[in-house]
Amino acid sequence: MSVLEVRDLSKSFGGVEAVADVSFDLGAGEFLALIGPNGAGKTTCFNMLNGYLRPDRGSVKLEGRELVGRRPRAIVRMGVGRTFQITRTFLSMTVRENVQMALISHHKRMFDFWSRAVRMYEGEADALLDLVSMRDQAARPCSELAYGDLKRLELAIALAHEPALLLMDEPTAGMAPSERVALMALTGEIVKSRGVSVLFTEHDMDVVFAHAHRILVLNRGRLIAEGSGAEIRENPLVQEVYLGGGTVFAAEGV
């Protein structure tokens, strides 16, 4: 059964169709990439999935429940976690506290006026930090972290809600090539071990072909191709879009 069902998702901005009739399914434990040139509508698509934009038409169902029309925070609570293209963390808190905050919110204890926040869900937070190999940095202020570590921290924060689906917007943007591989390998393991499904956008085709189980290609707001890495690489329409013809991906190999 598919975790996410997207049907006829559409959004226009002042007459420009940013996203038009996009439909796809995402299976349990699947690692799905959404790619496309700049301005293809990837971000608009993402923002409709996580509730920041209201689609003009279409429906998004998570495990059978409609997401369209709900607020972002409600969607988070229903089991859609996310990481940001530019990391967003609570800089005045430690690494562990950032995860604890997500856990506190998950357990609906945010309006507790009395307990000491730093003593809450410490064990669970450390377990999540272990998962992303950040346990040794748990006590460090978030403002001191390296960028790649912030990305891993965001992953741990997203997992605090036990999401069924993880939306990752450009997860490896701004990272060194070796870090990219490591982060995606880590994400892949988590997908496998926790049964989370992942939808991610990505510019780095090496990352996409190496890790995605399946790929969706978006161009000018429409889905133009869908399939495995090999299928996408051979697809003439995709090659047309990416370089106006020619062999785009041949050089990059596998």
Binding site: P72, R73, V76, R77, R82, F84, R88, T89, F90, L91, S92, M93, E97, M101, A102, I104, S105, H106, R109, M110, F111, D112, F113, W114, S115, R116, A117, V118, M120, I157, A160, H161
Partner: peptide, 28 residues
């Protein structure tokens, strides 16, 4: 002071640090 150390106070600091992140962990 007690509230500053409570989840509520931490939540306020969180919103101050990054409203986007606060929303993303499900805070109102």
């Amino acid at each position: 002071r007690r509230m500053a150390h409570s989840p509520f106070g931490y939540g306020l600091r969180g919103v101050r640090d990054s409203a986007v992140r606060a929303e993303a962990i499900g805070m109102d």
